[in-house]
Design a protein around this nucleic acid. Sequence first.
RNA 1: CGGGACGUGGCGCAGCCUGGUAGCGCACCUGCUUUGGGAGCAGGGGGUCGCGAGUUCAAAUCUCGCCGUCCCGACCA
Length: 602
Amino acid sequence: MDRSWNETAEAPEDGQVSYRAHGRGRSARVALNHMTQMLRASRYFLPTLRENPAEAEAPSHRLSLRAGLIRSVGSGLYTLMPAGLRAYRKIENIIREEMDGIGAQEILMPLLTPAELWQATGRYDLPELFRLSDRNDRPFVLAMTHEETVTHHAREINSYRQLPQTWYHFGLKERDEPRPRAGLLRVREFTLKDSYTFDRDQAGLDEAYAAHAGAYRRIFDRCGLEYYEVESDVGLMGGTGAHEYMAPCTSGENDMALCENGDYAANVDVATSLPTSPTFPASRTAPEEVETPGATTIDALASMLDIDPRATSKAMPVVGPGDEVVLALIRGDHRVHELKLQRALGGGFRPAHDEEIHEVFGADGGSLGPIGIDVKIIADEALQTGQFVAGANRNGFHLWGVEAGRDYQPALVADIREAETGDICTHCGGSLRIEPAIEVGNIFKLGTRYSEALGATYLDESGTERPIVMGSYGIGPARTMAAVIEQHHDDNGITWPKAVAPVDVQVIVLGAAGQEVIDMGESVANDVHAAGFTVLLDDRDQRPGEKFADADMLGAPIRITVGKKSLADESIDLRGRATGEETRVPATSAAEEISRLWAAVK
RNA sequence: CGGGACGUGGCGCAGCCUGGUAGCGCACCUGCUUUGGGAGCAGGGGGUCGCGAGUUCAAAUCUCGCCGUCCCGACCA
């Protein structure tokens, strides 16, 4: 068998009893994993749209609505319609197989959760958390993730002999998102495959983590997704390491830095890179004042002095932790990355107000610099070498030749700038580019935060009580489905990878061509179905154009056309959705030809 | 939470400025013709114009309030 792996169990030669799904009183073909079916468009609820829905902009959002895969119930709330659920189940099955493959055990935890568990971990007050009460006023939450619940269960683990464990489930999550967007890409309710590992120590966690990374790569590979495994910020959860699986697409919410040579990929929140080198003006032995009337922007300054904007520095006064005014200093052409600066400051910050700036610097924004002031300076790494033109802290003036270490002493030199396209890869010297991507999965070394908070401990060989070392891992199957659509579509609709397509083959019977053509279409569809494929037979009384358009929209990997022409020479037309290649084959060899073509399509 | 836009049959929209019969295209139902890339003709069904107040003889239209939706940003275990 050269079909995708999860389908061997459904092949006709497996000897299973075959039922037929459609039509009362008839039989449906049932297999262990999922059914291959013979679906009839005349009876299948596939509400395709002829026009673009006004509310949908992202390609996956637009196409899932137009192909009849999803319908909205409210902001960030979607129903998967029959065809949408079929694709979703394909992805779910792939995930389940790979999780089982690394020895993970499937469980199912409730959505409704006693508030105590969340109070115990200090997460009860998260703004995204839906809170509610029962009739006796007992507080509950709708789980937005299941660390609390799973750790509650891990309290039953007592001995090192019971470790390691890996548990997973496909569970609903509820999140009061500030802004749901783009169809399935960011929603308020969704099913997450979340898994949790329990180990004795960091080494065990490292192993579990690596196993998950392997499984995740296989999952996304099988789904036909282009993705990058990138280091990510451990965020508010703390923890000792994390990666995200990022699928590049125009609708992506995160920016990634990618090396042209493929040896570096990171979320810009944590990306490190080297800036391109400026062309410096003649160096000075000491800072030298220059009049720059009205030049309060880097562009204006650079053109007035006729210098490379990269040879300037830019000052951003902020009020950091402890209400202290701090000067963040970066190169003129760079942008401060807020999260990085926040990490360097050790807490949140806000831009300083105009009055605060004037009081501390004696000058206004646009003329600020690091010299002659009594303020803590955080300088970006890019300013370490070279002489830069900096603000003089005197309106209308700048300084030539300002050098870190010689002319001012930064309290801290740190990477606080946004990586940008054109930066140099620290690994290989290649060129980096920035691309948007959507996060389809993440893996996270939690450590002992939850086990300590909830008292999930075990006794080691020496009888010492230790907290269980945990990891958590998530994949959103519906978001993955949306990401697949983002990456696999054209002007006419979705071009599904075969492993996740809602149906394998669509058979179009053209027009009211008469009973003979209909019979031929039925016969071909039955043959192909019997060969182990899910078939959608378009037996509707519709115009050819509409049937072709719907077929393109839904995007089954292979389309078969049966029409008048077929009667003449007993032939049918096979067309690959993604390639558009069409071939004419004898109708009697349909099943055989489809199997052959199937092996070739992606 | 800040900024912007929108809410009128299932879908896409016009009408609103300048108050007076709720309209168009698609879809839907019936009949006839048609059928290899979203048909034609004829007939037909379907709308508390988001909700609530107010102004007015009269409100889809003007005023105020609320709700909802989308987009940008902030945020995002």
